[in-house]
Design a protein around this nucleic acid. Structure first.
Length: 195
DNA sequence: TAGGCGATGACCT
DNA sequence: GGTCATCGCCTAC
């Protein structure tokens, strides 16, 4: 993959930070994302083209949902470019509207942790496989993005959480110092970091 | 068709 | 800090 492609993927991912996501009565301000480069990224589901990853080969700005470890749902934004099948995993955010609804979906959890971690984020927003393929720029849809926002002031970058391949690629981005960001945990299967 | 594994989270010490 | 539940996908027979 060319350097230009890598920059592109990172730019599209960081552009989602600070942007709002509306889903099933809850509004979330995105504070943490991970970029997945698609066909050239060994850590991406699109690295092998299957029925599950097919949606990433389609038009951008659609929702890619997948089930992780059998129990949790994770939400991704297909960012394109289409031929690259790139997507961005939404890892954490701050609930800014529909707080009571989010709390009812995550009983007993402090507000700051309502949408911390990709599985928890999807749960707080009520996102499941039924939302697969949602048009995220369609304001009438049950799941959609808010308008573009100016870039967030301070953004940190680091390796992606829990991936066993390409574990040292710094494609996790978060709003520096934000309390809703999840903790980093390296995959137990990932090779030793080469420092 | 069967076996292994994972872009996780919760609970334990 | 560490361990483990849990099941849909993917790959190899």
């Amino acid at each position: 993959m060319s350097t230009h492609d890598e920059t592109d993927v990172a730019t599209r991912a960081t552009a989602l930070l600070g942007r709002e996501l509306h889903a099933h009565g809850v509004t979330l301000r995105i504070t943490e994302v991970e970029a997945y480069g698609g066909i050239h990224d060994p850590a991406s589901h699109a690295y092998t083209r299957t029925a599950r990853s097919e949606i990433m080969y389609g038009p951008p700005w659609r929702l890619y949902c997948y089930r992780s470890y059998g129990i949790h749902w994770c939400a991704n934004v297909v960012t394109g470019p289409t031929e690259q099948a790139a997507a961005v995993l939404l890892r954490a955010g701050e609930v800014v509207d529909g707080l009571d609804l989010a709390r009812s979906r995550r009983p007993g959890v402090p507000d700051v942790r309502l949408a911390r971690g990709p599985g928890n984020l999807a749960q707080a927003l009520g996102i499941t496989g039924d939302d697969l393929g949602s048009e995220l720029l369609d304001e009438t849809g049950a799941v959609h993005l808010g308008p573009e926002r100016p870039p967030v002031g301070r953004v940190s970058a680091g390796p992606r959480v829990g991936v066993s391949r390409a574990a040292d690629v710094p494609w996790r981005f978060w709003v520096t110092g934000d309390p809703t960001v999840s903790a980093y945990r390296r995959s137990p299967k990932a090779p030793q970091a080469s420092e």
